[in-house]
Design a protein around this nucleic acid. Structure first.
Lengths: 146, 146
DNA sequence: CGGATAAAAGACAGGTTTGTCTTTTTATAA
DNA sequence: TTATAAAAAGACAAACCTGTCTTTTATCCG
C-alpha cells in the first residue's frame, strides 16, 4: 500500500537533479546517491530508467552526469509510476482481481472506488516542477532525510 | 500501491467462512481454496494467521475446519492488514521514509496527507460483517471470481 | 485403543525487488 | 591519440513474497 523503493529513488533523484540544475549544468550519480543516502548502483539503474523513459538526460564521460530537459519539470507522478513499474490502484484492483469493475466488483470495490479516483487525480496532477516549488527552501532536507 | 496477495486471500477466506457459517458449522480448507480458486497450502498459512490473530477459529480432525466466532464479523480491514503484515499508508510514509511527519515531511507529504487519512477511515470503519451484508446476494461471485 | 480426518508445521523452490560489484561503452580534454 | 571520467550494462546475491509438497499434531468416531 506504499510506493516501491524504486519509485521513491526515482522521484528524489529527479528532484535533486532538477534542484542542482538551477545552478549547475550536471550532477553525477556519486553525488546524488551520497546526498540522498541511497544505494549507488541501484539508484544508477533507476536513473537509467528515467533517461530511457524520456524524462531526464544523461551524458557519459568527463563533465558528464545527469541533467534535466524541457520535459522534466512537467513529468507527473503518474508518469513516474509507469517508468518504475509501480502498480497503482486506478485501473487495477486493490485485491488484484483481474476482472474487477462495476458489473463484476471485488468485495472492496464500492468501498475504495472514490479513493482510487482521488489517488488518480493527485498522481496525474502533481508534477516535478510543482514539488520543487512547494518544497523550497527546505527542499534538500525533504528529499535527503530518511 | 495495492494490497498483498495474502491480504486478499485473508479477506476472501474470512468472508467465505462467514458466509458458509450461516448454514454450516465448519468449512474445510480444501473447499475454501477450491471455491476461491486460490493456492491451497498458501491459503492454509494465511488462515492460520487469522486464527493466531484471534479473528477466526479452527479445529483439527474429523468434523473440523474453520469457523467464525464472536469477534469475526467485527474485524476491520485495518486489523486484517496488521495480521497479513501489509504496510499501509497511514502511520507510515508512502515513500518509505522512516521519519516523515509535518515537521519533517517527505516531498509528497502534503500532497498525500488527506488521502492517507481517508484510507485510514475506510480501513478502520469497514468490517467483515459490513462486507458480508453489502455484497449479498451475489456474494460468492464477488469473492470467487478473479 | 486404532483408524481416519483435517489443521499445523516444516522444508523447499520460483519469482520479484533490492542491493553490490565488475566490466564495457561513450565522451572529453589535453 | 591517449588517459580519464562517468554512465550503461552485466553478473551475481540477499531478502521477501508466493506457491507446493511432506510430515506432524490434534481430534473425532467406532
Amino acid at each position: 500500500m506504499v510506493f516501491s523503493k524504486s519509485f521513491g529513488y526515482a522521484l528524489r533523484g529527479l528532484l535533486y537533479v532538477a534542484m542542482i540544475n538551477e545552478t549547475s549544468p550536471r550532477v553525477q550519480l556519486d553525488e546524488i546517491s551520497k546526498k540522498l543516502a541511497v544505494p549507488r548502483y541501484f539508484l544508477g539503474k533507476v536513473m537509467k530508467k528515467l533517461v530511457k523513459g524520456g524524462v531526464l538526460k544523461s551524458k557519459k564521460g568527463p563533465y558528464g552526469g545527469f541533467y534535466i530537459h524541457e520535459k522534466t519539470l512537467s513529468t507527473t507522478l503518474l508518469q513516474l509510476t509507469a517508468i518504475t513499474g509501480d502498480t497503482i490502484m486506478y485501473g487495477s484492483c486493490v485485491l488484484r482481481f483481474r476482472k474487477c469493475n462495476a458489473e463484476n466488483p471485488c468485495p472492496l470495490h464500492r468501498q475504495v472506488e472514490f479513493l482510487k479516483n482521488e489517488w488518480q487525480n493527485v498522481l496525474a496532477s502533481t508534477n516535478i516542477g510543482d514539488l520543487l516549488k512547494k518544497n523550497h527552501p527546505d527542499f534538500l532536507k525533504s528529499i535527503a532525510v530518511i
